[in-house]
């Protein structure tokens, strides 16, 4: 039996009258890379803060590393690494000092924390910037430093809340590479994201959250198999034409989805569907055939896009 790192049953979180998390069941085992996928406001960050043992649960049951966060928060946090959505670095201290003081919070000795800081600076490609002040770093560098900092105590469980939100594509790929290496080393990763490509790259298994509930669970590939077709044809017509054309094309695909700016034809054979569109004399402004992604799964399950 693999060790259970997180176990939540009917987990709830309310802020006043607002229910951010409405009874979710989650289990994450050691070595797994697990994701919460959903749009802003789905309850991902509230869930993460409860799992990080900094936010008291409003209902249900939660065990992290086998302990109850209500009574053992400090001991749980001693074994966690947390990369929050918003940077909480000290901007006036140097890059290295940020790592060193943080290691001290975990009770590491000064020599141990110095050695660990050097390793992590290397891992995060920040050795050249070790003595720079954090406020002088780029957004991507700050994120890398935040992730490096979350590894200072060699955590059993690494929690990443929207790790690449706000980064440019290149910086995101650098970060994904770093996270992928950690995953290869067997670190248990739990992350939230509203980027489906991020979830596909990094997660062995994920849950799709919407309005505080889990609406689907599985590996990225299994979710796509279960909730979408193999391929998607995206068609762009003139403004306002999409709605009317949806009915005309309905028989060409398993399912047709109308978005404000395009039509999506869900089919297992995109090539054949594209040809059929042309055979009917339609001239879309743009046409693209692609594989189904988690974005399509989300659209199917909730009727909405991930990034609004």
């Amino acid at each position: 039996m693999p060790e259970v790192m997180i176990s939540a049953r009917e987990l709830r979180k309310s802020f006043g009258d607002f229910e951010a998390v409405r009874g979710i069941d989650v289990e994450v085992v050691r070595g797994e890379s697990f994701g919460f996928l959903g749009p802003n406001g789905a309850g991902k960050s509230s869930t993460m803060r409860m799992v990080a043992a900094v936010s008291p649960i409003s209902g249900g049951e939660l065990r992290i590393l086998g302990r109850d966060p209500a009574t053992d928060g400090s001991r749980i946090r001693a074994r966690l690494g947390v990369c929050p959505q918003e940077d909480s670095l000290d901007p006036e201290l140097s890059v290295r000092d940020n790592l060193i003081v943080y290691g001290r919070y975990f009770g590491m000795t000064r020599p141990a924390v110095r050695a660990r800081a050097d390793e992590l600076l290397d891992f995060a490609q920040l050795t050249d910037k070790a003595n720079a002040r954090v406020e002088d770093l780029s957004g991507g560098m700050k994120r890398r430093l935040t992730i490096a900092r979350s590894l200072i105590n060699e955590p059993d469980l690494l929690l990443l809340d929207e790790p690449t939100t706000g980064l440019d594509p290149q910086a995101r790929h650098v970060l994904w590479d770093k996270l992928f290496r950690l995953k290869q080393q067997g670190v248990t990763l739990v992350l939230t994201t509203h980027y489906m490509d991020e979830a596909e790259q990094l997660c062995d298994r994920l849950v799709v959250m919407d309005k505080g509930r889990i609406v689907a669970e599985g590996s990225p590939a299994a979710l796509i198999r279960a909730h979408s077709t193999r391929e998607v044809v995206e068609l762009r017509f003139g403004v306002g034409e999409h709605e009317a054309l949806a009915d005309a094309l309905a028989d060409l695909a398993d399912r047709v989805e109308v978005l404000p700016d395009r039509l999506l034809l869900y089919t297992d054979d995109g090539e054949a569907a594209s040809v059929a569109v042309h055979d009917r004399g339609l001239q879309p402004v743009g046409m693209l055939t692609r594989r189904s992604t988690l974005e399509d799964v989300f659209l199917r399950l909730t009727g909405r896009s991930l990034v609004d």
Partner: peptide, 13 residues
Amino acid sequence: HKTYYGMLATPLR
């Protein structure tokens, strides 16, 4: 700077 939140993510209370 949210440095307190950073501290609170560790064993500190």
